[in-house]
């Protein structure tokens, strides 16, 4: 297995976006790309990352391999790469290590690190194709700000989607808060658009703690997609055009 990115920045951001939610995980490498699927320790959220082979500078995977890695260790290794350095990952069949090589574009500096692989028992969950009742596309910075603001007032957020707006509400000991975002088009700046596709109205409650973990992926993508159906996990997708995506799934809170 050998995969090379032109710039380390994307991989650094991907690891930063998931390492606090899932500690150790397996990267599954096939000839179509690298992916990981992992739950958080309390089994409330699920993370699915896909890095497509087309998104790499070069990519080769002769035999499918599952590499168990501590994401905190991977983050440490990637700290040694400059944002503009190229990154090459190498793993040989049956080897218990993965190699990282960072090279500056002027080629005057090359650094190499070897990370021990771990044995990880991963439980893979089947994620069914879902026809969602409401899909909201919005700037990822808006979602990050909304979740951070509401976290000051409560632990949970109720997201309600109607035809032309989406409402985020919370309440806590000191009071209540809500943020309403209305659909807005923007032909010259599609990344600032708020688009609401509503088949059925939806209202779901989630723990803000997890949404705040998810919005760590905001540096990877200008836009985010929230896909919701009543009594179904929320899917928060950060698309990375031509590269792949990070999808987070979060189980809703249900009335007792």
């Amino acid at each position: 297995f050998e995969a090379k990115w032109d710039h380390a920045s994307t991989l650094k951001k991907v690891i930063d976006a998931v390492k606090d939610l899932i500690g150790d995980t397996s990267w599954d490498c096939t000839n179509t790309g690298m992916s990981l699927q992992s739950m958080d320790s309390s089994h409330v959220a699920l993370v699915h990352v896909l890095l497509k082979s087309e998104g790499f500078e070069s990519y080769r995977c002769d035999r499918n391999v599952s590499m168990g890695i501590s994401l905190n260790s991977m983050a440490k290794v990637l700290k040694c790469a400059g944002n503009d350095d190229s990154v090459t990952l190498r793993h040989e069949s049956e080897s218990s290590v993965v190699n990282f090589a960072f090279e500056s574009h002027k080629e005057e500096r090359v650094s190499e690190f070897e990370l021990k692989l771990m044995n990880i028992d991963t439980e893979h969950l089947g994620i069914p194709e879902t026809e969602y009742d409401s899909i909201i596309k919005m700037p990822s910075a808006d979602l990050r700000r909304t979740c951070a603001d509401l976290s000051q007032f409560g632990d949970s957020v109720t997201i309600s989607c109607a035809k032309s707006d989406v409402r985020f509400e919370t309440s806590g000991d000191i009071g209540t808060g809500n943020v309403r975002l209305s659909a807005r088009g923007s032909s010259d700046k599609p990344e600032t658009e708020i688009a609401i596709e509503m088949i059925n109205p939806v209202s779901l409650t989630f723990a803000l703690k997890y949404l705040n973990f998810f919005t760590k992926a905001a540096p990877l993508s200008d836009t985010v997609k929230l896909c919701m159906s009543n009594n179904h996990p929320l899917c928060v997708e950060f698309p990375m055009p031509e590269v792949g995506y990070i999808r987070y799934y979060l189980a809703p809170k249900i009335d007792e």
Binding site: M39, L125, G126, A251
Partner: peptide, 14 residues
Amino acid sequence: DSKQSKITAFFVKT
């Protein structure tokens, strides 16, 4: 009061 459900209640092990 609302209770946090688990993701494993929605997605099945493969």
